[in-house]
């Protein structure tokens, strides 16, 4: 399940007045405050982008684009939602654009052509794979490949909700806020995603 979210969410709630102070400083042009604000969230942002796009280059692009958007538009932040929700809205929109473009182009996200031949993009991202005897490693590898393929079969929106709930640990209500939809719609989307995953992978776990 989600290893990161609850504690981070607790910290976010507790740190809100401090955070708003920081945002006001950024709005006044304090670049140091922007750096501080970035560091509060950038690990989560990069993890979300890398998890969704499964490509370190694309994750890097989304990171840069998202925070530059924040920097350019911070003056329009009106404190009517949490900064976290605002930031995640930007990041998820950018990621959804990437995922949709990928679907349209039927791009093979896993393979990157280099001067040294095709390279698996995921090799540059460290996955938590089980170590052990070779047979088990091979089995795990195959299972992970099937999981990757099953995730690719989800629609961009299902993929997003699943990533936010399973890997980022956001509650369904927060996911609804980030994606501009209701908690119920997020719940239905999660249900469809988990059902597809169960059908695709139920026989191998």
């Amino acid at each position: 399940m989600d290893p990161h979210a609850a504690a981070a969410a607790g910290a976010r709630v507790a740190a809100q007045p401090e955070e708003w102070e920081l945002i006001r400083s950024v709005q006044k042009g304090d670049r140091g405050a922007f750096d501080q604000l970035v560091r509060m969230y950038d690990q989560s942002v990069l993890r979300l982008a890398a998890g969704l796009l499964r490509s370190s280059e694309d994750a890097r692009d989304v990171y840069q684009e998202a925070f530059l958007k924040v920097y350019r538009n911070i003056h329009s932040f009106r404190f009517d939602c949490s900064f976290y929700t605002w930031l995640y809205r930007i990041v998820t929109n950018l990621c959804l654009d990437h995922l949709r473009r990928r679907k349209v182009r039927k791009e093979d996200a896993a393979v990157l052509e280099t001067s040294e031949g095709p390279v698996n993009r995921m090799d540059s991202l460290e996955e938590q794979r089980a170590l052990g005897n070779p047979e088990r490693s091979l089995w795990n590898r195959q299972l992970q490949d099937r999981i990757g393929a099953a995730l690719d079969e989800l629609t961009p929106r299902e993929r997003m909700v699943f990533e936010l709930r399973h890997y980022q640990g956001l509650r369904l209500r927060a996911i609804g806020e980030v994606l501009g939809t209701s908690e119920e719609a997020a719940k239905n989307c999660l249900f469809r995603a988990t059902q597809k995953m169960r059908l695709a992978l139920g026989d191998c776990v």
């Binding site: 690990q43 998890g51 994750a59 991202l125 996955e127 938590q128 890997y167 995953m197 169960r198």
Partner: peptide
């Protein structure tokens, strides 16, 4: 299935974060 999916989590390399 949940546990298997947990193992599919992506860990971001510190060097990637530093570069970003």
């Amino acid at each position: 299935l949940h546990r298997a999916l947990d193992e599919h989590a992506v860990e971001v390399e510190p060097a990637l974060l530093a570069g970003c």
